[in-house]
Design a protein around this nucleic acid. Structure first.
Length: 273
DNA sequence: CTGGGGATGGGGCCC
DNA sequence: GGGGCCCCATCCCCA
């Protein structure tokens, strides 16, 4: 089981996939001409939804830090929990360059451009986040969809304990720190200087920059392959194993990746797993 | 169709 | 409290 279960997920067991859902949300909430660099900052973040803030953070200055070679990875056993094979978001994304295109263009002044918030679910538009949030509740019909400041007291049936609600999405957290970390996934403060793609955390940006530089600091001990991401190396190491990490509960077949086991189950081997 | 690589997201832990 | 890193998970794409 993943360790990350502080967050309560109401609407879907599937994680948001920002390349599609998040970016679509951004385009839905923010006019295309609305520049990332001129979006509202934390001080007035109540006026933004999924809009990144300052793209030129100091984290940009500390970019490609030299990475020490990876030590041999010990492949610990992993539980084979139940898998959610819900339908994929049926994305057919164009290149990321296209998706990011224009987002880092020269920003017009926010004094000139009005803030317009479009509903994700219908064509309605609003001039304030609160109005949009209130409207979107009519779609979700979930009380916790409302921003925190708009619902000072939660109904007992909704939350039996204090929770920190994200004002940008329906998620809620049990600690303020977790909420702040989550909000970065909306503000996306780390922007690639090369392509303009924005990320929630500096290390995500560093990993992305490797796709530009071609740096692959994580080398396989068994072959001459190298990877830009440690997780990908870990997945690759599974290919060197006779017995893979993820095993089918019915046919005892093993797979190097969870996703492959997903596909295997979906193909009908384990209909009632 | 399957297996694998590439890329990216999130929460938790540690400093 | 925040940054960096770890680990896990997932999706897309391609051979």
């Amino acid at each position: 089981m993943p360790r990350s279960f502080l967050v309560k997920k109401y609407f879907s067991s599937k994680k948001p996939y920002y390349r599609e859902s998040q970016l679509e949300s951004q385009s839905a909430f923010v006019p295309e001409s609305f520049p990332r660099a001129e979006l509202p900052t934390q001080n007035n973040s109540s006026a933004l939804t999924c809009c990144p803030t300052n793209p030129f953070l100091s984290s940009m200055d500390a970019l490609p830090a030299p990475l020490s070679p990876i030590t041999p990875v010990s492949l610990s056993p992993s539980p084979l929990g139940p898998l959610d094979l819900s339908s994929s978001p049926s994305s057919s994304s164009s290149s990321e360059e296209e998706e990011d295109g224009g987002r880092t263009s020269d920003p017009p002044s926010p004094d000139v451009i009005p803030h317009i918030y479009h509903c994700l679910h219908c064509s309605n538009s609003y001039t304030s986040l609160s109005a949009l949030s209130h409207h979107q509740m009519s779609h979700h019909q979930l009380a916790h969809c409302a921003p925190l400041q708009q619902m000072p007291s939660l109904p007992a049936e909704v939350s039996a304990r204090p929770a920190f609600h994200c004002k940008h999405c329906p998620k809620e957290y049990t600690s303020l720190g977790a909420l702040k970390m989550h909000i970065r996934s909306h503000t996306l403060p780390c922007v690639c200087p090369t392509c303009g793609k924005a990320f929630s955390r500096p290390w995500l940006l560093r990993g992305h920059i490797r796709t530009h530089t071609g740096e692959r600091p994580f080398a396989c001990q068994h072959c001459n392959r190298a990877f830009a991401d440690r997780s990908n190396l870990r997945a690759h190491l599974q290919t060197h194993s006779e017995v893979k990490k993820y095993q089918c509960g019915s046919c005892a077949r093993t797979f190097s990746r969870m996703s492959l086991l997903h596909k295997h189950n979906a193909s009908g081997c384990c209909p009632a797993s």
